[in-house]
């Protein structure tokens, strides 16, 4: 079996995961900012927390768009993380952690480091195979 394409496929899967870990992470920070802003506004208006404008105050409409985009990005993040797990068989509990990390601000960046550190050598291992070396 040709291992070249497989190494490529694995590194692509890793890249997909890394891109989504970053974008989801950034949107989660925006979402957090939005909710924190709503909290400050709630103190001013006396309104129910989530009925405040939040980020819409700064960029009109963003208060509606940010949670929605984050939701879809996170779904893609979960799919891509599970896909990467199917390819690499990283520890299953670790993968559960990686998936949950996407819901905690900043943690997706940590998870991205954890995953990359483990998957990058695997990509290398696939290439070694092609060169004729037997991987453990």
């Amino acid at each position: 079996m040709a291992t070249g394409p497989r190494a490529k496929a694995l590194s692509n899967a890793l890249l997909r995961y890394r891109v989504l870990a970053w974008t989801t992470g950034i949107f989660l920070l925006l979402l957090t900012l939005h909710i924190v802003l709503q909290g400050f506004q709630a103190a001013d208006t006396g309104e129910f927390w989530f009925s405040n404008e939040g980020m819409s105050q700064i960029v009109p409409g963003s208060g509606h768009i940010i949670p929605m985009i984050h939701g879809w990005l996170y779904l893609a993040y979960v799919i891509v993380a599970v896909d990467l797990w199917m390819r690499t068989r990283l520890p299953a509990w670790g993968t559960v952690g990686v998936v949950l990390a996407g819901t905690i601000p900043v943690m997706s960046f940590v998870a991205e480091r954890w995953v990359t550190a483990r998957v990058q050598p695997m990509v290398g291992a696939v290439k070694e195979k092609k060169a004729g070396t037997v991987s453990s």
Binding site: R6, R89, P91, G94, S135
Partner: peptide, 22 residues
């Protein structure tokens, strides 16, 4: 039979480990 106790791969996990590539 893909899941097996592989001490090398096992860090924070109790059940499964072993990269498919190997």
């Amino acid at each position: 039979g893909l899941l097996r106790r592989d001490l090398e791969e096992e860090d924070d996990d109790e059940d499964e480990a072993a990269p498919a590539v190997s």
